[in-house]
Structure formats: C-alpha cells, structure tokens
Design a protein around this nucleic acid. Structure first.
Lengths: 402, 402
DNA sequence: TAGGCATGTGCGGAATTCCGCACAGATTGC
DNA sequence: GCAATCTGTGCGGAATTCCGCACATGCCTA
C-alpha cells in the first residue's frame, strides 16, 4: 500500500517521506494537487497525507475531490500548529484525521498506519462483497461441510492466488479434474483457456499443441504418472523455458519421486492439494447426495423426491470407494425412482429404463392432472402411443385426476 | 453500535456520555474494568473509551485484556493533559487512539466515530469472509451477473432473514420453486423440511397433512391461484392459528386480489419476490447456459464441450419465453452433442429417456473399465444390442479404459 | 336434448429395436 | 509364436413399438 504525500515544501516532504520509509511504508511524494490527481481513484491502494495550506489548489480542494471520487479514501490533513478552527473544519469536511505541524514521527506514523489499516479493510470488504455476490468458485463447486472440505477449499484458493504449478492428489472418483478447474476459475486467468488432457495420451508434438492451446490459462494433466518419459523431458524443457500456462498435474494413485523424472516431480510437488476421500468425511455425504439428486432432477425435469433419513443412513453406512463419482451415480438412480443407493450389482438396463419411464409418465400425469390428451402432448407422444405405454406400466389416467 | 465508556470519575462519564448521545451514538457507561469485562468479546459491536489512570485495574490492563480477546477491538485511551510519554506508550501498546483530557466534544467525537467505523469494517470483513467461505445459497443457486439477478438475490436474502410468508412471482419456467427453496436454504430453518406442493392438488385434509410435514420448516405452494376456495379458507384458519411453518406461495400467472380470498392474498402480498424474465436480463444467458452445460456434463460424465461465440450469439438472439427451464433443456441437448440450442420448453419423453439411457450406459462402462463384454453382461444385454446402443449414443468403450 | 369434446381401445401397417451369427482383427497369456 | 479371448461390425430375421384410423362411450355446456 502507498502513502501519497502532498506538500509544497520540499523539506517537509522529504522528512515525512523518510519517516515513512523507515517504517517500511511506501511514500509517493508530490508538490501539488495536479501531480496526484490521477492517483485518486476508487481502487487506489493507499491513503493521502496533504498539507492544508498550499498555493493554488489547497488541501480542502484535494479532500473534496477525493471524497467525490471515493468517500472511503482516507485523507489526512496537515495543519498549522494550534490552528484548531481549521482542524475542526477539516474533520467536518470528511478528512480521516488531521495532524498539527510539526508533529513527532510516532504520532504521524500512528495516524498513517491507522488510516492504511482502514483503507485495507475497505478494499478487502469490497473484494469480499464482490466474491459473495458473484459466488466464489470454491464454495460453489467444492461442496461439503466438513473441516476437510473447508481445507480443500482453502488449499484451492491458496494455489489459485499463488499462481504456481501444483499437484492434485486424491483417490479414484474423487474429482481431481474438477479441483483443477476450480483452481483455474479462482485465478486471475479464469477467463482464459482451461485445457484438460490425459497425460498417458500425450506425445512430444501433442504436448506442444496443448501448451499452445492453454497459453495464458491452465493446462491440467490427468494421471500424471502415465506421462511417457520422453514427454516428461519435453515438458521439463518447456517449464524451464517458460511454459506460458499454469500446469496442474493430477493423480489418483499414490505418487513418489521415482514415479516421475525427479526434477518434474519436485516441480509439481511445491504445492499439493489433497482431496480427502468420502469415507474420511462422511458428514459431507448428505449434502453432496442432495446436491447431486437436485442436479439430476433439474436435468431430467423430474420432481425432487424426498430423501428420507433411512436413505441417508444407508448412504452413510457405505465407504464409497468410488468417491464422488459413485455418489453422483447413486443420486441419479435415486432421482429416477430406482430406489437404489448402493454400489452393488445392477439391475438390467431394460428394467431400469422401464422404472424411469414409469416415473416420467407419472410425473407428467401429475403435472397435467390426469388429462390424457394434455399429458401426451406434454410428453410429445402420439395419444395412442401414450395409451400403449400406460397399459405397459399398468397406469390409468383416472387415478391422477382431482 | 455501542461506545463502552470507562472512567472512575462519574462527572466525566456523564459528560462524555451526553456528548455521545447528542451525536446519536449509544454510550454504555462504567466505572471500572470489572464492570465491562464481559462486554469484551470478539463479536462486540462497538468500541471502548477508557481513562488510563484508574484505581485497581487501569486503562492499560483493560487494553491488554481487550487485545488478547480481539486484537481488532478499538480501545481509545484518555490521558492527562500533556502526558506525552503516556500517550506514546498507549499507541505502542496497541491502543487505537488517545485523547488528552480535557478535550473538546468535536475532537472526541471525531476519534470515536473513526473508531466505530473501523470496527464496523472489521466486523463486516469477518461476516463477508464467512459468507465466502460457506457459500451463500443465493449466490450458489440464483445465478446471473445482471442487476436484476443481484436484486433477486437481495430480495431472497431479505425474505429469508425476515422469516415471513411471501409471494414469489415470475413467468412460466422462471423457477419459482427454486427461489422458494433458496429462501428456505438461507433461513435459520434450512435444516428443517422443505415441502413443495401444487396448490391445485390440495384438499382440506391433504392441506393439514402437508402443513404437518413442513412443521418448523417451509411449505411452498405452487400456482397458488389454483388453490380451491375451501382450501383457501382452511389455510387462512391455520395461518391465523399459527401454521407452524413458513408458507411461500408461487404463481406464474399475474395475480391480483380477486384471484384469491382477499385476506389470503394480502397475507402473502406483504412481501414479494419477483423473478425477472430471461428476456429482460440477457446478459445472464451466457453464465447460466455454461452452468447448465457443466451440470449436464457432470451428471452424464461427458467432456465439457467448447461453447463458441456463435452458440452464445444464437442464445442471445432468442427471447426465451420458456425461461430457465428452456435454457436447461437447451444446455442438456448441447452437452449431449445435439446441435440444438433453441427455446424449447419441455422435453419429450423420448429425449428424456435417451438421456437417461446414455447416462446408465456410461455409468456401467465406468464400473467395468470399458470392458465391453462385462458391461453388456452387467446391463443384462446381448453384446450386439449393447454395441447398437453405444452407436446410437455416440459412445466408445475405449474411452472408458484405464 | 343435442352437439362438441375428451377418453379409451382394437386393428393393422410401418418403423424401429433386438439379437444371433459369422467374420476379421486386436489383445493377452502361456 | 500360437492359442485363447475379447472386440467390433454387417447382415438379416424376429420381435416389439409407434401410431394413424375408426369407432364407441362418457362428460360438459348451451
């Protein structure tokens, strides 16, 4: 953050500037309003200290201008010694604070530091408010109420902010690609390309190609341990020469230095994001399951079924080696009325499809209060076809009338 | 916000308290540390002004205690006139500011006001950070970057916070039920039941039933204008006697007092949430479309297709009388590789069944790591039939092998 | 009471799906 | 290197589904 110091007296400017520098702050010195005018924007990351009595545009003018530009931009006014009426007027005019000249360094620094802190909070609050309004990608996409889910979001935000390459680890089905995308969405390059590529399917020429496509954005290499050795060398060369994109590597198998070229391994291992398995954060299962059921229902335009406590108990009783992917599948089946939330052997496809069709027919009948013609139209079926299907499923329109 | 004023001299306390009250601030007066100790918590909504020299625990002790409790809690110290060493020590010890006794009301008020503002920023900062971390339901579920979308989220948050019954209006396909659910999720009763019911399908006995199911939570009555008149009377009786649940009413047709019993109409019309039509906020279409495509891809485990600018242009060129529901359908078709992004409100049964079958095939392929024979057996299909279905859905086994 | 509209069903032709078979090619294991 | 196994596909007959048509019946309204 900066301290914009405005005083027509060069000696005072220098002295105060030195005081600031000795405190580790960043002064920007100027002799007049005109010299600093362009700094005074709503996003200016700093505060203003100005002498009140200056030729031409005085401190009050500057204060007035600043307040119109950003009412939360702190302006500290330097007054003459004992000029109490002027000080009162300054505060009344919206100055953050005032200091009487000459003042001791500690008093000066105290006021400036307080103002900088206030400014920092204002800017941070604006940023946070924008994040809330927009919906931070981590909280939107990485769900869960467990401490482990919190940690995952925090790790993702940290990696995004740092902008470095990183390694994403997690068991099969845990969503390494999704976490990579979240990191991308959280980063300044969110509007740029996000390229996802299976590492095992790369060769040297296609590596160059995907790096070009990801330029300025993010390249995610799935299952990095399958990257062919010649491609590993080529990748290292690119990284050393500037890859032009952030590279995230994912793996669902445990990884150790010997699994990759050592330099490449340690390059990615600078930062890790570890996705906790579902079995270690079972408290997240109800939230995730409900979300996936809602998603499936929205997609298929199905009514949202009640999720009873016995369903939740059944979900919680399993360990979910298939992680989120398996939970998505279970949720989809549940949404379709298949009443199957286990990861066990399946019914045949035909039986499942019949159950789904029956659910969809019932939902449509309900939407249309049992009016056959309307329901057939709703489903974009010929009336006859519709009747045929009802017969097949032992359904009768009259059962759905008021 | 409060000003906690600590001084062993009653005359000074009273005088400063009056100064604060005249400024519209809220003083809390105390003669000793012990009297205020319990106020000093991390969530204390105010600042502390304390005399430094007091019998027993002095101002420094209070400052020290406060800083340990919450380093961001401003403590203003009142010093004796000219006691500069003491003032310096105060600031060095982390006091927010100091004032020399006696000081004028305006100087006193300026410091206090500044401290209150600083405290407000800190508390707001914490609240916003928590909201970001948790993921506010409004920003997660009610998407859009337009001012109208902002307004919808704000209305939803306000209704949620007030805890009253309300009316939700919006055109067909705009998602009145979804907004009702968001309001529910934002409210303190989020963990309780959310019951959705078509108003047209209610009778007096089923009304009692759904109110019982929603007890402590939220009941959403869809298409409230279709509520039979006898049920309206029954509902009014329950509302007057305490319904036991928050009741939200939705309508996709314009509603006026004559459309319902007058008392019932005005009961719900206390608060309205109006969902803006997509045609009035086209800037939201790209964001929403992308979200729905991502959702469809996640459900069906499909790779995310690129959404070209020509696709966006075509979406923007339509008015979307089917609103979000139609956009969901278009997104699903796009995700499935159907080059059809037009405003089609309902899906036919065949399209829905095709989507389901595709999802089930993919899930089975994943379970079987792309082994065709095993997958066909799993689905209880002839191998040939299985291959026919893959062809029909543009699926290839090899894409699901390790 | 009559007309209009909606419902429900049998018949039968067209369209679609199921699926066995045979074959060629690829992969895996001994 | 070879045998066993798996994969993928075209052909074609059987089975199933789609759906228009015609008709009878019931309900609602003027």
């Amino acid at each position: 953050m900066k301290v914009l110091l405005v005083d027509d007296d060069p000696a005072i400017r220098e002295a105060l500037g030195q005081t600031l520098e000795l405190e580790g702050l960043t002064p920007v010195l100027a002799g007049s309003f005109l010299a600093v005018k362009d700094h005074l924007t709503p996003t200016f990351d700093g505060v203003v200290v100005t002498d009140m009595r200056m030729p031409g545009r005085d401190g009050f003018h500057l204060l007035d201008y600043a307040r119109k530009t950003d009412p939360d931009l702190p302006v500290i006014l330097l007054t003459g010694e004992g000029d109490i009426p002027m000080a009162v007027k300054a505060i009344a005019s919206g100055a953050y604070d005032f200091l009487e000249k000459p003042c001791g360094p500690s008093a000066f620094l105290a006021v400036v530091t307080r103002a900088l802190k206030a400014r920092g909070l204002v800017l941070e609050n604006r940023r946070l408010a924008a994040a809330v309004a927009q919906g931070d990608a981590a909280s939107r996409l990485l769900r869960g109420v467990s401490p482990q889910a919190d940690e995952l979001r925090s790790q993702s935000r940290r990696v995004a902010a740092l902008g470095t390459d990183a390694l994403i680890t997690g068991d099969r089905g845990s969503g390494t690609a999704k976490v990579a995308e979240v990191v991308h969405l959280l980063s300044p390059a969110a509007a740029r390309a996000f390229v996802k590529q299976s590492a095992g399917q790369l060769d040297v020429s296609s590596l160059a190609h995907v790096l070009d496509r990801a330029a300025g954005g993010t390249l995610y290499l799935d299952e990095i341990t399958r990257l062919p050795e010649d491609v590993q060398y080529a990748l290292l060369d690119r990284i050393e020469g500037g890859a032009g994109a952030r590279i995230l590597a994912g793996t669902t198998v445990p990884i150790e230095p010997g699994d990759l070229l050592e330099d490449l391994f340690y390059h990615f291992d600078i930062l890790r994001i570890h996705i906790p398995p579902l079995c270690g954060r079972k408290v997240d299962i109800p939230v995730l399951f409900r979300h996936y059921v809602e998603q499936a229902c929205e997609q298929a335009n199905l009514p949202m079924p009640d999720i009873g406590s016995e369903v939740i108990a059944r979900l919680m009783a399993q360990d979910w080696p298939g992680n989120a992917r398996a939970l998505v599948n279970a949720a989809m089946r549940f949404a379709m009325g298949l009443d199957d939330t286990d990861d066990v052997e399946e019914q045949g496809l035909a039986v499942q499809m019949a159950a789904v069709e029956r659910s969809l027919l019932i939902a449509a009948l309900q939407r249309n209060q049992g009016r056959a013609g309307d329901t057939a139209t709703d489903l974009m079926l010929a009336r006859k076809t519709f009747y045929d299907k009802l017969a097949r499923h032992n359904l009768r329109c009259e059962d759905y009338r008021m």
